[in-house]
Write a protein that binds this DNA or RNA. Structure first.
Lengths: 206, 206
DNA sequence: CGAAACGTTGACCGTTTTCAATTACAGTGG
DNA sequence: CCACTGTAATTGAAAACGGTCAACGTTTCG
């Protein structure tokens, strides 16, 4: 996706802090003081916001090499939980104040930061767009198209469907049913952990 | 909300371009080459993305003083339409290349840009969170809580409900019905262009 | 003053959610 | 190595909810 983490190096290594997390362990909780911006070194973390009724929303998923919680730079508290997804997850925490100091003198790094944020804006907008599709099958098709790559557009599933269901805003049951419909209609073909998009005049790209 | 438009001044006025728009007129369409980042001087614009089935999503609304299409700085084409909402809308268009040049030498301005983008990320995440609430009345309550301010938390409505409906992802009928339910239940009180949040133990803030 | 958009409510229909049950599979400890 | 347990995948049936269509009063604005 390009150089997203350029600005991390601005802060002297001894000022950064490394954290190792087990799967499910939290790096911070919503409401905690926003003290640092982070990067995933290994594994994967997920930013989750909890609703009052107990449901939760995955706001962001950051894989190895990606940065997250940039928005915390100008916020007092974190507004979501950060939990590790993979068993061996390592995160670099960059103290907010130090980073802000460094950024103030470095236009390139600040621009890189802005660029990363712009990418997030795009991603979030795309997700919002998907949520506006009422029909479950169409919504899933849209999601698949967004994820697909290759000439016969295909998607390799790295996570369970059940997780994808919540990401697109459906129950897993509805998701499975829709998948079945799409397969019967011949719009997709399901492999082991793969989905291939079929259909003439179908492969529009976002 | 703070100095969002700091970076606009970086580009010499003669390089900028002013556009006057009538209500409903488009500034650009999705697919057009992304040539400029913009600021609303007067009126209001809306960024809309059209789905294949004809439906549309409001991705962003920018009021006078706010900037928009920052993401276009690193994109080749606009990925949504921009249409004026108010009758007399004026927009300053800042050529992409010129702005990029200027930003590269100015850390403060780049940081300001990043900050504005971070705010957008937060806003989009909030909207996503709201969309994850299945129940229409609860979703509306969440939206209201987010907008509310004051000790008896209240919301002043600057726009028609019909518009709010699409923002929260409901039809206006469903919205009106839910409002009626919430009012009957005593959870809200509706004034002329105001809604007051009631209910004991209700005023949680985001 | 008239047209257009907003606000509001009713009835019906379709989809999704819910609840429930079953199969498949991966990891765990005996 | 295998029973055992929990999660993922899948499908069914019924209920609930929001969408759609429709009608109508009201406000706004040219």
């Amino acid at each position: 996706m390009g150089p997203k983490g350029t600005w991390i190096g601005l802060v002297a290594p001894e000022k950064r802090r490394l954290r190792n997390l087990k799967a499910g362990e939290a790096l911070f909780r919503q409401g905690d003081a926003a003290v640092a911006v982070c990067r995933v070194d290994r594994g994967r973390v997920r930013l989750v916001r909890h609703l009052e009724d107990g449901a939760s929303v995955a706001l962001h998923v950051a894989n190895a090499g990606e940065t997250f919680a940039e928005a915390a730079l100008w916020a007092d508290v974190y507004h979501c939980d950060c939990v590790a997804e993979a068993a061996l997850t390592t995160v670099t925490m960059v103290p907010k104040a130090a980073l802000l100091d460094a950024l103030e003198g470095d236009a390139d790094a600040s621009l890189a930061l802005a660029r990363g944020l712009a990418a997030q804006v795009r991603e979030l907008r795309a997700r919002l767009e998907i949520r506006n599709i009422r029909s479950a099958p169409e919504r899933i098709m849209a999601w698949l198209r967004m994820q697909a790559s290759g000439d016969p557009p295909a998607v390799r599933l790295e996570r369970p469907w059940t997780e994808i269901a919540t990401e697109v805003g459906l129950t897993h049951e509805a998701l499975y049913r829709s998948l079945a419909v799409l397969a019967h209609t011949g719009r997709i073909a399901r492999g082991n952990r793969t989905v291939t998009l079929l259909g003439p005049a179908g492969q529009a790209r976002g």
